[in-house]
Amino acid sequence: MCDKKYFILNEPVSVVIAYQEAESDEEDTFKIDKGQLGEIIDQRNHALFLPGWVRIAHGPNDEFFVKMSNLQSVAEWLTENEYQAKVAAKQIFQETWLDKEKQIELIKTLEVCKWLPNTTTSGIPYSVPVYLPIGTVGKVYELAWDYEGSDDKQYWVMGIEVAGGQHYDVMYPELLKASKAFGNS
Rank of each mutant, 00 (worst) to 15 (best):
F65C: 02
R55D: 01
E82N: 09
V66D: 00
F65Q: 01
K86R: 15
L48H: 13
V54R: 04
P60W: 03
V66S: 00
N81K: 15
A88Q: 08
S69L: 07
V87I: 15
V66E: 01
T79R: 01
P51Q: 01
R55K: 15
P51C: 00
A85N: 14
H46S: 09
N61F: 15
F65I: 01
D62Q: 10
A47L: 05
G59I: 04
I56E: 00
E82G: 13
S73G: 10
H58Q: 06
S73L: 04
F49C: 07
Q72V: 09
K86Q: 13
H46D: 06
E80K: 14
A75N: 02
L50V: 09
V87T: 08
L48W: 10
W77F: 09
Q72T: 06
I56M: 01
A88L: 07
K67Y: 13
K86D: 07
E82S: 12
S73Y: 06
M68E: 07
P60H: 07
L50S: 02
E80T: 10
Q84T: 11
P60C: 05
K86M: 14
G52K: 03
G52L: 03
S69E: 08
M68N: 05
M68W: 10
N70L: 09
H46A: 08
E76Y: 09
V66P: 03
P51K: 04
F64I: 00
A88H: 08
I56C: 05
N61M: 08
D62Y: 13
V87R: 11
L48Y: 14
D62C: 10
M68S: 08
A88V: 09
E82D: 13
D62H: 12
Q72D: 11
V87D: 00
E80Y: 14
W53V: 05
N70R: 09
Y83A: 03
N81T: 15
V87F: 08
N70D: 15
E82Q: 15
V87N: 03
W53E: 00
A57S: 14
E63Y: 14
E80G: 10
W77E: 01
T79G: 04
P60E: 02
L71Q: 00
A57C: 06
V54E: 00
A75W: 01
A85P: 08
Q84P: 04
G59A: 05
H58T: 06
V87P: 04
A47E: 02
N61H: 12
Y83V: 07
L48P: 07
V74S: 02
Y83L: 04
M68H: 11
A88I: 09
E80A: 13
F65R: 02
F65A: 00
A85R: 10
A75H: 05
W77N: 05
Y83E: 00
A88K: 11
M68V: 11
F49H: 08
F64V: 00
P51M: 00
F65M: 04
L78N: 04
W77C: 06
F64C: 02
F49L: 01
V66K: 00
Y83S: 06
A85V: 09
K67I: 03
A47Q: 03
A85W: 07
A85D: 13
G52P: 07
H58L: 10
L48M: 11
G52F: 06
A47W: 08
A75C: 09
A89C: 06
L71P: 08
W77V: 03
K67Q: 13
Q72H: 13
K86P: 09
N70A: 15
M68L: 15
P60T: 02
V87A: 03
H46Y: 14
N81D: 15
L50P: 04
K67D: 07
N81M: 12
Y83H: 14
